[in-house]
Design a protein around this nucleic acid. Structure first.
Lengths: 259, 259
DNA sequence: GGCTATTGGTATTTTATTGGTATTATCCCG
DNA sequence: CGGGATAATACCAATAAAATACCAATAGCC
C-alpha cells in the first residue's frame, strides 16, 4: 500500500465524524507525516489527484494543504508539486505561547494540584500601596499558593490585588483570572520580569530543596483595559524542575522557500 | 465524553435548584472552563445546539453566554461560533532584540564590551553532531565570549555552528548574526529555553561571583527558512545583575484556531 | 529551444450554519 | 394593577465551507 493510499485510508476512517472536510483531510495528512509514512522530501499526490480520489473539491484539498504549508509541515513548488518539508525538528505551536502553569503541566501529562498558603485581606505594605495605587485606608487581598505537579512542589505564587476587585479571596476557585472575569475585572495586558535568584530558607523548605539552590523568579504586573493596575504577582519556580520555552520568529524579507 | 457533554451533565445536576435557567447554564459553562474541560480557543456548541440539547430556548442560552462574554470568559464571532477566550499571550519579540545584548545594555545607559574566550574550528561533540546535523568528518565552529557592561562581567555566551556556514570564526565582527546574514544564512526562527542554574566554578570565576550563585541560563536553537538548524547557543547571565522583561497581552478574536 | 501536459495559484459564487435583534408572552412580587 | 425579570418566537446578517472556472509557473519531452 502506497503512502498516498494511507492518507486516503485514514480519511475514510474519519469520514463519519461530521467535522469539516478540510479538517479531516488535514488531520489525515498530518498523521501520515508524523507516523513517517511519508518522510521529508517525499512528494504528495497532486491536489487534483487527492481531490478526485477522495471525491471532494480541489479547493477543499487546497485549504487543508495550505494550512499545513503555513504550519511548516509541507512545502509547495508551483508547477512542480507538494512535498513534505525537510525540517529536522518541528516546533509545537503551543511553545509560542506563554502558558499558564496548569495548562503547561497538563500538556506534559502531569497531574497538578495546589495548596493554599495564604488567602485573606490585609493592610497594604508601602510597596503594594504604590504599585496597586491604594490609599492607606483600603485593603489588599493577598493570595499565595504552592503549586505541585506529580507530588513534586514546583512553584510558589504570591499575588496581591486591590480588595475592591477581589473582596472575598476565600471564594477563589482554581483560577484567579476566572474569578476576576466574573466581576468584569479581567486584565488585558501584563508586564513580566524573569530573573534568577537563590532560594531563601522559607521558600526552599516549601519547595523541598536545599537553601541557596537557584530558582526562577517571575514578577508580573497586570493591567485592565483602562490602564489601571489590577494585580501584582511574584512567583518562584524551582530552577531544576521547570523552565520556560519560547519560540521566536523573524519576519520580513528574505523568507524565500528553498528550491 | 466530549467537553460539550460535560456542560450538559453539570446542567442536569443543577436542574432541580429552582434558580433561573440562564443562571444554571452560566454556572455550568463557567465551571467547565475553570476546570479546563474546555480550554482557550476551543469552540462551544452553537447556541442552537445547546438550546435543543438542554431543551430550553435559544434566547435563554444567549442570555447566559452573553454574560460570560461581557465577563471576558467567552468570545463570540458572528457567523463563526462561540469560543473560550484566549489567555494572555506573549508579544512577539524580534530575534535580534533578544540576542542583541549590546543594544539592550546601551538602552540602560551602560558601556559595553566583549572579551573573546574562544573562536575556532573543532571536531564536533556528539551533542553538536546531533543538534546541528553534522557528520563526524565535518567541523563545528565554536564562538564564546564574555560580555561586560560598565566593567562588570554580565554574561557568558557560547555558540556552536556548522563550519559550512561560518568557515572563518576569526572574521566575526561585533555581531554574529550580521556575519551570518552576509553569507545568506540568516536564521528566521528560534526556540529558546530559559531556566535557572547554580553557577559552576569556572563560570562563576569569569563572572566574578562566588560559585553557586544563581544564574539565568538560556539555550537557543536557530533555524533557517528551510528548517535546517544553523546555530545552538547556551548563555549564562548573572542572576543578580540582569533580567528579562517580556510584555504580555490578551489577543483579540480572529486568530487562527489550532492548526 | 520551444511546445505542452501537469502542477500549483486565484477569483468568484453558492449554500448552510452561525451569531444578532426585535417583538411578544409569561410569571413573580410589590 | 403594574414593573421587572424571565423566557419563547420569528426573522436578519455575517461568516465559513465548498464548489466552479480560470490563470500562471514549472518540468519534461520532442
Amino acid at each position: 500500500m502506497s503512502a498516498a493510499d494511507q492518507i486516503f485510508a485514514m480519511l475514510r476512517e474519519s469520514s463519519q465524524s461530521g467535522a469539516p472536510l478540510y479538517l479531516q483531510l488535514r488531520k489525515s495528512i498530518e498523521e501520515a507525516v508524523n507516523r513517517g509514512l511519508i518522510g521529508p522530501g517525499d512528494a504528495l499526490p497532486s491536489e487534483r489527484d487527492i481531490a478526485s480520489k477522495a471525491d471532494i473539491s480541489r479547493v477543499t484539498v487546497r485549504k487543508a494543504v495550505q494550512d499545513l504549508v503555513k504550519g511548516g509541515i509541507l512545502v509547495q513548488r508551483h508547477g512542480s508539486g507538494t512535498f513534505v518539508a525537510p525540517r529536522m525538528e518541528r516546533v509545537e505551536q503551543s511553545l509560542s505561547r506563554l502558558t499558564s502553569f496548569t495548562e503547561d503541566m497538563a500538556r506534559r501529562g502531569m497531574s497538578v494540584r495546589s495548596v493554599w498558603l495564604d488567602r485573606g485581606l490585609y493592610a497594604p505594605s508601602p510597596d503594594e500601596m504604590m504599585v496597586l495605587g491604594l490609599s492607606s485606608t483600603e485593603l489588599v487581598a493577598r493570595v499565595a499558593r504552592l503549586r505541585i505537579a506529580n507530588d513534586t512542589p514546583l512553584a510558589i505564587e504570591r499575588a496581591a490585588l486591590s480588595a475592591s476587585v477581589l473582596p472575598d479571596p476565600e471564594a477563589i476557585g482554581s483560577s484567579l483570572y476566572a474569578a476576576l472575569g466574573t466581576t468584569g475585572n479581567r486584565p488585558v495586558r501584563a508586564v513580566q520580569r524573569i530573573s534568577a535568584t537563590n532560594l531563601g530558607d522559607a521558600d526552599a523548605r516549601l519547595l523541598e530543596v536545599p537553601p541557596g539552590v537557584a530558582g526562577l523568579q517571575i514578577e508580573r504586573i497586570s493591567y485592565l483595559a483602562s490602564g489601571k493596575v489590577i494585580e501584582f504577582t511574584r512567583s518562584v519556580y524551582r530552577g531544576d524542575a521547570y523552565d520556560f520555552v519560547a519560540e521566536l520568529r523573524l519576519t520580513g524579507p528574505g523568507e524565500e522557500i528553498r528550491p
